[in-house]
Amino acid sequence: MAHVVEICDADDPRVDDFRDLSRADRRPDRPGGRGLVIAEGVVVVERLLASPYPVRALFGVRRRIDELAAATAALDVPAYVADADVMARVVGFHLNRGVLAVADRAPAVEPADLVDRSRRLAVLEGVGDHENLGALFRNAAALGVDGVLLGAGCSDPLYRRSVRVSMGHVLRVPFAHLASWPNDLKLLRDRGFRVAALTPRADAKPLRDAALDQGPVAVLLGSEGPGLTEQAIAAADLAVRIPMADGVDSLNVATAGAIAFHAMSGT
């Protein structure tokens, strides 16, 4: 089981994986950094422990580490315990959730492998906001989407804020990166998928008429500002819109995604 180690000195090198998370140039989950996956809070840490990501260590106040005793019973990793003040000095801010865990990244999933084992997919272009990305993964998990394909301009789903906003579901919904955008959408068509581009433009087919619950379907979602590029829409099989009241021209991408994912489920 995880072995508890008391940390009394904020400069203790054993907790360096958790150090200075508030500084943009030191966060280990940033691209170009050490590439660690960081989970915050008991629920998200539990989901990290149940995921394929190899856990390195936990760090928290005694009460939160004790709450995770059952989840860590099979782990041979350190569980560092400190008081709230020492933990805040290490992390760089006061952590209300009281516990963190860090893990190495799992091997990358090949897009073809993900497509081959899926029937409902989300495909993202230019989703750069970490909170929106995390919310999209949470919605995908809740509404039965089998996986997420990341096209050009997307942020890292394993960035700490994305993991937190997703409530750890980014750790259970498989994702893969498309290297050639939007040319790699051909991969979906070659495997029998219908590709639907979600856009508010008036000539798009209303969502209720798009039959997204029929057969293998991938829904394209674009960036928070301009939405999908014309190239992405042109590469899709059809353009689909969510009808809205007069005076409202768009929805937050995570909200639009949830509506589309529900339509895909057929429930």
Rank of each mutant, 00 (worst) to 15 (best):
R172F: 13
G151R: 00
R164S: 11
H177P: 00
S155M: 04
V163W: 01
D184C: 11
V163N: 06
F175P: 01
V173R: 02
G153Y: 00
G153V: 05
P174K: 14
L158N: 01
F175T: 07
L158V: 00
L187V: 02
L150S: 03
L185P: 06
Y159V: 14
S162T: 09
L178Y: 01
D184S: 12
P157T: 09
V173E: 09
H169M: 15
K186Q: 15
S166P: 04
H177C: 09
L187K: 07
D156S: 08
N183A: 15
V165P: 00
L150R: 06
A176D: 12
A179M: 07
R172K: 14
H169R: 14
L187Y: 03
H169I: 04
A176T: 09
A179G: 05
V165D: 07
D184I: 00
G151Q: 08
Y159D: 14
L149F: 12
Y159A: 13
S166W: 00
K186A: 15
L187N: 10
A179E: 13
G153S: 09
V163T: 11
N183R: 13
D184N: 14
A176G: 11
V173N: 10
L187H: 05
A152Y: 10
R160D: 01
D156M: 04
V170A: 14
A179L: 08
R161L: 04
W181A: 03
H177M: 07
V173Q: 08
P157K: 04
P182R: 01
S162W: 04
D156E: 09
G151H: 12
H177V: 14
L187P: 03
G168R: 03
P174C: 08
L150K: 07
W181E: 04
L149C: 09
L187G: 02
H169A: 15
S180Y: 04
L149R: 07
